[in-house]
Simulated assay, not measured.
Amino acid sequence: MAKKNCKLWLACVVVILLLIVQGYFVAKLLSSKIPNRESLTFVQKSDISKKDYEKMVGGLPQKKAALQHHHLKRHHLNFLAENLDNKGPEPLVETDDTLTPRPLTANEQAGNNILFTLRTTRKFHEKRLPVLFDTWLTTVNTSNVFLVTDGGEDKKWKGRAGLKYIDVPCRASYQRYDLCCKAGTELSLMFRDENLHYDWLCHVDDDIYVLLKSLVEQLSKFRPREEPIYFGRSGSAWTKPRAVIHGAKYGKPGQKYHFAVGGMYCLSRAMLELAEPYLVGGKEFAKSCSNTLEPEDVTVGVVVGVLLNQSLSRTAMIYTHGLELWKETKRFPKELDKKIAYAYGWGAVHWGAPAQINHIVVPQALYSIKEDQTQFYSLHCFLHPTLSTCIKKGTG
């Protein structure tokens, strides 16, 4: 009996060893076909030619690209869930909105110390840019605005209204490596010789309306050349900070930090100088994205909170896509002009009871949703009622 049991035990050991060997060779085969995260190289225009960049990223296996896209999609779904779980507005006593502004120079009051990077992509030029040029971009000095885009030169928009046109060698996609490529180029603009006079860099997506006066007032509470400031709306409820994910090389798994929603955030020059080794330049930013295993907006939060041990200076005055915009803006109809920025929600539907199209609600809107899905024209006329186009629309 004992001899029989011994043979059975030896047979089990042999089977287990065979399974281990088989698993090893299968894993090796898969790893040879799907490159690891570190094998991805991110670049900016100054690092490599556009032709070489396209050759490099164009050859990535489809399965790898799908994995990257899935990771980014998961991030946005988590972000949406975290925000909708945060019932009501963030209490102002817990934000930096209540800090006292300091006296400003005339240059600061005009927002001329702020470098705006307006990120878009070639396929959205005709759909999104006209709305911005007709609305909030008319309220700022467009020589301070850098249009960061892809797809080659677009003569219609290059130099439009005096803004700077930055064509980056990044593919027109929302995959992580392409967004990191753009982000690294954006932040490097602050270190160009001709831009050293700027105190702030404010990143803005192409579906955001910015209220310059409110932004200037909030940023005036800080000393951007002395204080490392990372300013924006928290991407999750303040009581539920994000955690460093397993496998990341920056920080320890589970380490907590806050990141600003990617639609709009601002970095002071002092913060950018601290973060330069990690975020400034295509290769540097991309390496950080690879080390955090996160999209570009979350990566900024990891670098600031985990590596630099700094905190997010948060505001409840930026309203982005993850919020129920129709509900949020209905609560303060007479205070729309007191906020910093609004997203237009892409006309997405919130499936509730009843279903609701997610867009900002403007009192006595001059444009219907059918006429203006963004409601930016209605918002612009609400903020600037004496404009001739608004008067004509109101009396027409």
Rank of each mutant, 00 (worst) to 15 (best):
N5R: 15
C6P: 02
K7L: 15
W9N: 12
L10I: 11
A11Y: 06
A11R: 14
L19E: 09
V21F: 14
V21M: 11
S32K: 12
N36Y: 13
R37V: 08
S39V: 05
S46P: 00
I48L: 15
I48R: 10
G58R: 05
H71N: 14
R74P: 01
D85W: 07
G88Q: 09
P91E: 06
L99T: 06
F116K: 00
T120Y: 05
T120V: 07
T121S: 15
T121A: 13
K123I: 12
F133A: 05
T135P: 04
S143D: 11
L147H: 00
D167E: 14
A172K: 10
Y177P: 00
D178G: 02
C180K: 04
A183M: 13
A183D: 04
L189Y: 02
F191E: 09
E194W: 05
L196R: 15
D206I: 06
I208T: 05
L219E: 02
L219S: 02
S220V: 00
R223H: 11
R225Q: 14
P228K: 11
I229Y: 07
Y230H: 10
G235W: 01
A237H: 09
T239D: 15
K240G: 06
V244S: 04
H246W: 12
G247A: 10
Y250K: 03
L267C: 06
S268L: 05
Y278V: 04
V280T: 05
K287I: 07
E296A: 05
D297A: 10
G305V: 02
V306L: 03
N309T: 09
S313T: 05
S313W: 00
T315P: 06
T315N: 03
A316F: 03
Y319H: 14
T320K: 01
G322E: 03
L323H: 00
E324S: 12
L325T: 00
P333V: 05
K334E: 15
L336M: 09
Y342D: 00
W346H: 10
N358T: 04
N358L: 01
I369A: 09
I369P: 03
I369M: 08
Q375H: 10
Q375G: 03
F382Q: 04
H384L: 12
T386D: 15
T386N: 15
T386P: 09
T389N: 14
K392S: 14
G394L: 08
